[in-house]
Design a binder for these strands. Structure first.
Lengths: 242, 242
DNA sequence: GTAAACATTATGTCAGACAAAGTTTTCGAA
DNA sequence: TTCGAAAACTTTGTCTGACATAATGTTTAC
């Protein structure tokens, strides 16, 4: 006897479209239909359960994956918030880290060409407004640094302004993730907090070069900045090998 | 009466170390203790449940996340297999894709500097053996191409040989993922199968330059190769906008 | 008016049951 | 004996329900 109800697939609209019936697609559709933006809250899980027609575990597995990818953030009591868009595809790289010091150098090796290319693109493509912002961020960075405060947030804002001017979000996303990995490894095992602080004075002429449209000079200065960080990293790596 | 058993935390060794008690760490420890290698099978979920002392949903959420990152692959009846190592850190980027054609161009924009830097590093650092392999792969590619067969696997092997010679796995991992995304979007919506086929003849002098240690020439040729692909991509993008 | 106490909301974890899809074993016929 | 199909088994996939835990919102007491 068929005593158990078969899992009730969604009831709404099954007329025409043969959409793939999985949680990610359903969630994306809901986000689009609802017009949810970055920063907005998603409906709670139990509401998703009966709006999407999937079980809670299934929905949770997708949400957990999205969290690990950085698409949403989740907190008890506070709900799930969108923190970056996820419409179709995900670029993911599993970083194999065995020897920490070596990994630091490898990350900088990858960051170097990306950062240089980003600066080149920004120099060529930035709008007048964006050039103004880049200049302002550089001035801010120098001011914070000379005041002896923690300059790292300002540094981050400066580079972010440059990345935005490239018109290609991927640069920012990849470099951001590399830096995040870098700090994950770096902060904990070694002590030094202010890696790269000698590079700060270089940021002023760098901003000037970008604003002036001098691509070669901007690229050269960026290379200098990163190479200084690389050299420091190398030194740390060597100390670590003793 | 206290009829329900409190969640039995692990029974084994709780003497000294204050390890973080989460599923990923427990799983990594199990993989290390067991000496599991890439390709090996993990114990089934129900066994993990009582060996690690977590609930099945909790373990599943971690496993699902690892699958989405590409660390394991899972199949009904066949179990969960390790397909790449995941020791400590993961670099992940959520690619925001709205307009497909534009995304293709952006991906090439990011790939360009990475590929060029990889070639530079390979030119400087490759061992004699690695140079031999690069040469062989180039010859192979040309041969396959002239025979009129599908040259893409050979192309992939050639670039992989170059990436390996950099001594930095990250280049290969990131570029591989970018190409994978690229093909995910590319193959389906547009028809053309042989994007970049005009670049094949350039691979012979490129390999020669790498083997000879001529970094500038190698870099220049790589730039030419990618720019040709970029130009084709751009054309496709424009056609798509009609 | 402020702060503590309580109630509400939402995610985190666990447990049990069944479904679906592979994998291995069994068994019969050529 | 060997090959192929069916049956049995294994393992992941999904659903449901319950309780724990943490953040937020509201009320109450001083």
């Amino acid at each position: 006897m068929p005593g158990k109800a078969p899992p009730k697939k969604l009831s709404s609209q099954e007329h025409a479209a043969e959409k793939p019936r999985d949680v990610p697609h359903a969630l994306i559709k809901l986000i689009e239909d609802e017009g949810l933006q970055v920063g907005d809250r998603l409906p709670p899980e139990l509401e998703l359960v009966h709006r999407l027609g999937f079980g809670r575990s299934t929905i949770r597995e997708t949400l957990k994956t999205w969290e690990s990818i950085g698409v949403v953030s989740r907190n008890k009591g506070a709900g799930t918030r969108l923190i970056s868009e996820m419409s179709r595809n995900t670029l993911r790289v599993a970083l194999t880290i065995k020897h920490e010091a070596e990994s630091l150098i490898r990350m900088q090796q990858v960051r170097r060409p990306l950062e240089i290319e980003a600066v080149r693109l920004a120099t060529r493509l930035a709008s007048p407004d964006q050039r103004r912002v880049i200049n302002a961020r550089a001035a801010e960075l120098i001011a914070v640094f000379e005041a002896g405060e923690d300059w790292r947030p300002a540094d981050h804002r400066f580079h972010k302004a440059v990345h935005e001017a490239t018109g290609n979000l991927l640069f920012e996303q990849i470099i951001d993730q590399i830096l995040k990995c870098f700090h994950d490894i770096y902060e904990t095992p070694f002590g030094k907090p202010h890696l790269g602080q000698d590079t700060i004075p270089l940021h002023k002429p760098l901003a000037a070069a970008i604003v002036a449209g001098d691509e070669e000079k901007a690229a050269e200065l960026t290379a200098r900045v990163i190479d200084m960080v690389c050299a420091e990293t190398q030194k740390i790596a060597e100390e670590c090998n003793d």
